[in-house]
């Protein structure tokens, strides 16, 4: 926020809320990065760390909600302040969900690590990198109040959706080829789905940033990959 309030303690409380969101965001970002690393490098120790860290994100969400309630009750915020505070509620729940997905990826990776390596795990790496970049950029956009960057993320989510669809098809063919692959491929499929969901939440955050700064949601159709095109396969 550019200018200060006449009542300085109001600034203090809003800044505290924004700091909690940023802390939550950077923790979530690390969790997603580590979750992808766990799958790619079969690092069970790191997977354990991710699962242990997840409650910290949940606690930050609770803290942000307490600050939000307090600000709404005591300051009766309007205009940019109101939008900032309302958007904090939404962003914190998106981040919390992203944290859950990262922990879920880690849990599935622990199971995968008990199975013989499957080469398809590498295609997850690409999708993981693209998803991580989306999240990183949207968090940057939040920190720097950068609408342009947020809109960029909004448009790029389609890429993650397309990757998910392609991984889905690829994994299905491996499962059809050899039924021994089914367990590992199913876990990989859920991992890919989790990454795709993380991309969606990053897109939600991008919309919220746009609303916070501009006072209205981004215009135009939200770009969507053909995620549900997967069902086509059963039709043929």
């Amino acid at each position: 926020m550019s200018d200060e309030h006449t009542v300085k303690s109001f600034d203090g409380e809003i800044n505290r809320l924004n700091d909690v969101i940023i802390e939550m965001a950077s923790l979530t970002k690390e969790q997603v990065r580590d979750a992808v690393t766990v799958v790619v490098k079969r690092d069970s120790e790191l997977a354990g760390e991710i699962i242990e860290k997840d409650p910290a994100i949940n606690n930050l969400e609770l803290e942000s909600h307490e600050l939000t309630m307090r600000l709404l009750a005591l300051r009766q915020p309007v205009a940019i302040d109101l939008r900032n505070i309302v958007v904090s509620i939404k962003i914190s729940s998106d981040l919390e969900r992203i944290g859950d997905y990262a922990a879920n990826v880690a849990k599935r990776a622990l199971v995968l690590n008990q199975l013989p390596p499957v080469k398809q795990a590498r295609t997850i790496k690409n999708m993981g990198r693209v998803t991580y970049d989306l999240l990183k950029d949207v968090i940057d956009a939040y920190e720097h109040q950068d609408v342009k960057k947020a809109l960029d993320v909004w448009h790029r989510d389609e890429e993650v959706d397309d990757m998910y669809t392609s991984i889905f098809r690829e994994l299905l063919t491996y499962m059809m080829e050899d039924t021994h692959n089914i367990t590992a491929c199913t876990h990989l499929l859920f991992i890919a789905r989790n990454l795709e969901r993380i991309g969606d939440h990053a897109t939600n955050i991008a919309e919220d940033i746009h609303f916070m700064i501009k006072g209205k949601p981004p215009t135009g159709r939200r770009p969507m990959g053909d995620v549900d095109g997967e069902f086509d396969i059963f039709d043929h």
Partner: peptide
Amino acid sequence: TNPVNKLTQDYIT
């Protein structure tokens, strides 16, 4: 919720 003018915004916030 979304004043157009910066003066308005500064005043009401």
